[in-house]
Structures are given as C-alpha cells and as structure tokens.
Simulated assay, not measured.
Amino acid sequence: MLRAATEDDVDTIRRLRNQQANRDVSITAHEITADEHAAWWAKTSVDPSRRVLIYTRDGATAGVVNFFDLDGTSGAWGFFLDADGLAERGETLPAWIEIMREATTYAFDELGLDVLTGEVLEHNTVVRQMNRRFRFTEGTPETRYADGREITVIPISLRRQDRRTQGKL
C-alpha cells in the first residue's frame, strides 16, 4: 500500500535511504546527514511538483517512493526499499514487485501521467532487468561525477500505453 509521507515519516525515510544497499545504487552515495535530510524535507514537503509516498507491507514501512518534476503529463520517479528488513524476512522480491506495481499505477492512474521517467546506475543490473519486465525502456547512458566517483547513469522511461497492467512479470 502507498500513502502520503508525513512529518512523522521523516526519520524513517532517512534511515532507509542511508542503508548501505540503497546508497550503493544511488547517484548520491554518501550518508545523508540529519541537517541535509531536514532541508530536503522542508523543500520537498511544500513543492507541488513532488510527491513522497510511504510503501507499507503487512502494516510496516517497507519503502519510499519519490515522484518529482511533475508537470501534469510527465514526471520522474525513484524508490528505495527497507533493504535490511525485507532481506531479513525473505520478502525483498515480492516487496520489490509490489512497490513497482503500486508506484506505476499511482503515476498513471492517480497522477494522470502519460510518461514516467527515471534513472538507474549502469552497474545496477538487477534493477535494470526488473525495469525491463515492467516495460521501461533505456536511453543513452551518461557519465557523471558524484560523491567523488565516476558513474554511468542510464535514463529510463515508460509510456502510459506501454505499461504492464495485469499478468505475470
């Protein structure tokens, strides 16, 4: 289930984002400080072009979905899971599939987007494979420098008419 994030979720969002597994596959790989996170939330929580959603599974927070650059017909997104907690319970794959289903449904049915975009690091082959299963297409890779490292970022996109609505992955 997805629900809007509130002030009560801010510390949990930061804790999940700072899990090593999430930092390893993020453009910004450093540990997010409390001050940095507070500044992000202060800006994000009042920005009409953004939505931060909490993904819950069996009543517990299991991930975060960020939508940004929303303009009415297109928008970008990213998400991260409670990598540590889900792995401990053996629920990573079902949670991953569920959050992607729910987030893409939200993007197209709730936000009314025609195109959903995002980015994935080239080395994140598992996510790239899952994105393909959800019918995202990859664009031209771009080399960037972030947090003192060179990374290759691949843009992804999914058009409303191409999305997977039902059935097996």
Rank of each mutant, 00 (worst) to 15 (best):
residue 1 M to P: 07
residue 1 M to T: 10
residue 4 A to W: 04
residue 5 A to N: 00
residue 6 T to G: 14
residue 7 E to T: 08
residue 11 D to F: 00
residue 14 R to L: 13
residue 14 R to A: 15
residue 16 L to R: 04
residue 16 L to P: 06
residue 18 N to K: 03
residue 18 N to H: 07
residue 23 R to V: 03
residue 25 V to C: 08
residue 26 S to F: 13
residue 27 I to H: 05
residue 28 T to V: 15
residue 29 A to N: 11
residue 30 H to R: 13
residue 30 H to M: 02
residue 31 E to P: 00
residue 34 A to R: 12
residue 34 A to G: 06
residue 35 D to N: 09
residue 38 A to G: 00
residue 39 A to E: 15
residue 43 K to Q: 11
residue 46 V to L: 04
residue 47 D to F: 02
residue 48 P to F: 02
residue 50 R to V: 12
residue 52 V to D: 00
residue 53 L to M: 12
residue 54 I to K: 02
residue 58 D to P: 03
residue 58 D to M: 10
residue 58 D to K: 15
residue 59 G to C: 11
residue 60 A to T: 15
residue 61 T to E: 15
residue 62 A to D: 13
residue 62 A to E: 12
residue 62 A to P: 06
residue 64 V to M: 10
residue 64 V to P: 02
residue 66 N to D: 13
residue 68 F to A: 03
residue 68 F to Q: 04
residue 69 D to Q: 10
residue 69 D to N: 14
residue 70 L to V: 03
residue 71 D to L: 04
residue 72 G to M: 05
residue 72 G to K: 07
residue 72 G to A: 08
residue 74 S to H: 08
residue 75 G to P: 05
residue 77 W to K: 01
residue 79 F to G: 03
residue 79 F to V: 05
residue 80 F to L: 09
residue 80 F to N: 00
residue 81 L to H: 01
residue 83 A to H: 08
residue 84 D to T: 15
residue 85 G to Y: 01
residue 85 G to S: 08
residue 88 E to Y: 09
residue 89 R to I: 02
residue 92 T to S: 10
residue 92 T to M: 11
residue 92 T to V: 14
residue 92 T to A: 11
residue 92 T to R: 14
residue 97 I to H: 06
residue 98 E to Q: 12
residue 100 M to W: 03
residue 102 E to P: 04
residue 103 A to Q: 07
residue 104 T to R: 01
residue 105 T to G: 09
residue 106 Y to K: 03
residue 108 F to H: 01
residue 109 D to W: 00
residue 111 L to D: 03
residue 113 L to M: 04
residue 114 D to H: 13
residue 115 V to C: 08
residue 115 V to E: 14
residue 115 V to H: 01
residue 116 L to V: 10
residue 117 T to H: 11
residue 118 G to M: 09
residue 121 L to T: 13
residue 123 H to T: 12
residue 123 H to I: 02
residue 124 N to Y: 08
residue 125 T to G: 11
residue 125 T to A: 12
residue 126 V to G: 00
residue 126 V to E: 11
residue 126 V to K: 06
residue 127 V to Y: 01
residue 127 V to M: 10
residue 128 R to T: 02
residue 129 Q to P: 02
residue 131 N to E: 10
residue 132 R to D: 00
residue 132 R to V: 08
residue 132 R to Q: 15
residue 133 R to K: 14
residue 133 R to P: 01
residue 134 F to Q: 06
residue 134 F to D: 09
residue 135 R to N: 13
residue 136 F to S: 04
residue 137 T to M: 01
residue 138 E to G: 00
residue 139 G to Q: 07
residue 142 E to T: 13
residue 143 T to C: 02
residue 143 T to H: 01
residue 144 R to Y: 04
residue 145 Y to L: 07
residue 145 Y to P: 04
residue 146 A to K: 13
residue 147 D to N: 14
residue 148 G to M: 07
residue 149 R to G: 08
residue 150 E to T: 14
residue 152 T to A: 12
residue 154 I to E: 11
residue 156 I to L: 15
residue 156 I to T: 15
residue 158 L to S: 02
residue 158 L to P: 06
residue 158 L to E: 11
residue 163 R to D: 11
residue 163 R to V: 07
residue 164 R to I: 11
residue 165 T to E: 15
residue 165 T to Q: 13
residue 169 L to E: 09
residue 169 L to Y: 12
